[in-house]
Write a protein that binds this DNA or RNA. Structure first.
Lengths: 267, 267
DNA sequence: GAGTGGATTTCGCAT
DNA sequence: ATGCGAAGTCCACTC
């Protein structure tokens, strides 16, 4: 027989709680793996890969159910201090301040937050099964090229994707209408010299092992002037692709696997 | 004569407001450049460099006074959707949902959030002048090497830092005890093949323009196995440095400028 | 505004 | 665990 226990209200909100009151509510929330949201005056110490100190001020602090931590100042997209998921937390009162300590195991790191005033404390469990989908990634471009190789040039035939070479993976590899080997490096945004060097390295590695001519094509929406100079001097080429159009193209056949797109056999 | 206006309470907190009530409070907050914190059920569309859709679920939404936007799900360090500072915002009611739209000018991007339920709304101005200081950055290592060149090796004499070469900037450049040119690339953490290639590129560029032998040293706390192989095959070398120790060393003389550390003249 | 490189990058994937 | 590369990366800095 089922016993109905009293259901704890989902959203707990405390306005300007005392530090002792806040301590109790936060500890409860940690036990129950509730998300904790605090707006208050605090100072922060971080020790780990680097170290940092943040002097007192009013901030927004979030501890999520997965053990991630965010400390946000009044400005900026990025948190001033944080920890990725997986931390465990300790709390205690100390000289008129409430301490929340986030501890990470590997790498060993700690973030310690000292509150001397809390304006808002809220703890809750977020119910969120909503699907997240994103378009116009590098993978979408890759699929579009495999699906419609003429994006690169007439007569291009892809043979493999994510092909392992000595120094890493080639995004797409195939042959042109003259039968020459073609290696394609894909970037979803303006490419700089790094991408050119990366492609050059792949070409070098393949030339050495295959012992024949290899064409290198950088497929991206844009290329910087200096990168183009370098590209040209290395005998490589650039093909403009529009990530959005690629993404739209791919969306029509999104049920297909990448491997279905390959129509030619290895040469 | 000064007129005392009624002071608006700093922290406004609304528990489960109606969408219409929330709309008014949010619009007020935007006008007054207050930070807006919302916990509620929403769905999100993003269009810009890429596109994304997030189906309904409960999330934490923050709009900061500088026009940055964060949408956080119940897990993870990173926001699921966001905008960096500088957005402007529009709000309106629409078919039983409250819409908050963030618009960025360059690149042109929009994030649209539709709420159909709000559990917590809070608006406030954070007072935060607290200084933030961080230690053990790549710059700290650079300073430590300039301050105490024997970190690299006995007899090493730095000559320049951030020296411009054809393909970028060399972190530190100097001569060894034999008078050979030395180029040092600094990384604050484990280095992979990219850093090796970067150093190799600098060496190549300098060799070409200087027309003489150049030694390359990668200074970092660690190097990956494959990166070490590549390093060796390219005739470069690795020097282990501890970012923390470098940082401590630097802290003792943090009032000095980098340029004060250079004791030798250009050769 | 473009271009470059760092970051307590984080994240995911493969070895 | 290590290694590697992408990311709507963001950000600071230079030209």
């Amino acid at each position: 027989m089922a016993i109905l226990l009293p259901v704890k209200r989902a959203f707990l909100i405390y306005e300007s709680p005392s530090l002792n009151e806040a301590l109790s509510r936060i500890e409860e929330a940690f036990v129950e793996q509730r998300t904790v949201l605090i707006v208050g005056r605090c100072w922060v110490e971080y020790r780990g890969r680097a170290s940092s100190k943040l002097k007192p001020g009013e901030r927004i602090v979030i501890v999520k159910e997965d053990g991630s931590l965010l400390v946000h100042r009044c400005r900026g997209y990025e948190p001033v201090n944080w920890q990725p998921p997986g931390c465990f937390f300790k709390t205690h009162m100390n000289d008129n301040s409430l301490t929340v300590k986030a501890i990470r195991r590997s790498p060993r790191e700690t973030v310690i937050i000292y509150f001397d005033q809390i304006y808002l404390l809220s703890t809750f469990k977020l119910i969120d099964e909503g699907e997240f989908s994103i378009y116009a990634s590098e993978e979408d471009i890759q699929k579009a090229i495999l699906l419609n190789p003429s994006i690169i040039e007439d007569g291009f035939t892809p043979i493999e994707y994510e092909k392992k070479v000595e120094s890493g993976f080639v995004d797409v590899y195939g042959v042109d209408k003259e039968g020459r080997m073609v290696v394609i490096e894909i970037k979803r945004r303006t490419v700089g010299k790094d991408a050119v060097l990366q492609l050059a390295r792949y070409i070098e590695s393949i030339k050495t092992s295959a012992g024949r001519e290899v064409r290198g094509i950088l497929a991206a929406p844009q290329i910087s002037g200096e990168a183009r100079d370098l590209l040209t001097s290395l005998g490589l080429s650039f093909k403009r692709v529009d990530p959005k159009k690629c993404s739209e193209m791919f969306r029509k056949v999104k049920d297909k696997k990448i491997s279905d797109f390959l129509q030619a056999e290895e040469v």
